[in-house]
Amino acid sequence: MDSITTTLSVPFLPTNQSEVCAGADATLENTLFGVFYVLVFFLALNGNALALWIFSHQRGAASPANVFMLHLAVADLCYVFILPLRAAYHLTGGHWPFGEAACRAAGFLFYVNMYASLYFLACVAGDRYLAVVHAVRSLKARRARSAHIASLLLWAMVAVSMAPLLLSRQTAEVDGVTVCRQLYREKASRRALVSLGVAFTPPFLFTLACYLLIVRSLRRGSRLDPALKTKALRTIGLVMLIYVLCFLPYHVSRATFILGYARPDVGCGARRALSLANRLTSALTCLNAALDPLVYLFGAEKFRGTVRRMFCREEAAGISAATSGELKGTHESSLSAKSEF
């Protein structure tokens, strides 16, 4: 992943033709992107903040899956706080008013969240595989301490790989407007294909393999408790959904963009479509921060139990308040009736 930072940093294409073909961002596009980022911000902030609070206050020994989900929530929250900046950029018509440092941080956290999420989700899938297929033999290996060590190593690998984004200039002036390069248009270098393959393909194939092996094991009549079987299938299925919905379209679009954008026989309309598809799928990657809490809900029993108790208490409090109000209203009506006589 050491080449990711240089190939996925987002300088502009050098040709004037490419700049002309890109055109100005449409008002409708900017509005839709801005509203989308605002909605994702509120969903992801509430879901991951709740998850982080629950995971950090759980009693007893944490399972490896819960450890990976805890780190996944941290990764999502690190990214959630730059979503308002992305929203403001689009809602102001493609102008970046926050300066160079904020633009660098936005690009850095975008890639750190995406690739940390990819690998943490793969870790969750791997833990589900061990728990289902090798339930007894994996007991010693599946320790919370080992999961924390693996998570810290993943954090270090991703952060170091993306660190050059913090050192290279990420803003530019285009037609008198300051733009943040990652949000304006990404680089169409063929060298980025190597980084896309290294960063995305291994965790995706690993997660897919875990899913297929778990399904095969369950079809062969695993002795695992039915409730645990359902939990494993839900977790892996949801993880695969996040891969397919949030990450796969972006990486396919990036590969298509890289291969097609700089070709001399590609017209301006096609380049515009490629650029728009790249921006759209880039925005879709943010959905993972809003969908990850569903992984916690289906994959972590203690998390689900805590959420259920919270809602039950709120529902009970609401019923109690309503009952109290009805009794109070009945008593007042009775007093009023007596006063009329």
Results as ranks from 00 to 15, higher is better:
Ile4Phe: 07
Pro14Ile: 11
Glu19Ala: 11
Cys21His: 11
Ala24Leu: 14
Asp25Gly: 04
Leu32Thr: 01
Leu32Ala: 03
Gly34Ile: 00
Phe36Leu: 02
Gly47Glu: 04
Ala49Glu: 11
Trp53Ala: 13
Phe55Pro: 03
Ser56Gly: 15
His57Tyr: 12
Ala65His: 01
Asn66Ser: 09
Asn66Ile: 09
His71Tyr: 15
Ala73Ser: 15
Ala73Arg: 06
Leu77Pro: 11
Val80His: 00
Val80Ser: 00
His90Asp: 02
Leu91Met: 02
Trp96Cys: 01
Ala102Arg: 05
Gly107Phe: 00
Leu109Val: 03
Ala116Gln: 14
Arg128Val: 15
Arg137Thr: 12
Ala141Phe: 13
Arg143Thr: 14
Ala159Tyr: 05
Met162Lys: 02
Met162Ala: 06
Leu183Tyr: 11
Arg185Gly: 14
Arg185Ile: 15
Ala188Arg: 00
Thr201Pro: 01
Leu213Lys: 06
Ile214Arg: 03
Val215His: 03
Arg216Ala: 07
Arg223Ile: 05
Leu224Thr: 04
Asp225Arg: 09
Ala232Val: 07
Leu238Val: 08
Leu245Asn: 05
Phe247Thr: 04
Phe247Arg: 08
Val252Glu: 10
Ser253Thr: 11
Thr256His: 10
Phe257Pro: 08
Tyr261Thr: 11
Arg263Cys: 11
Asp265Leu: 14
Gly267Asp: 08
Gly267Phe: 02
Ala270Trp: 02
Arg272Thr: 07
Thr285Ala: 12
Cys286Ile: 00
Asn288Tyr: 07
Leu291Arg: 02
Gly299Gln: 01
Ala300Gly: 05
Arg304Cys: 11
Arg308Gln: 13
Met310Ile: 08
Met310Tyr: 14
Arg313Lys: 13
Glu315Tyr: 12
Ile319Asn: 07
Thr323Ile: 01
Ser336Lys: 13
Glu340Ala: 06
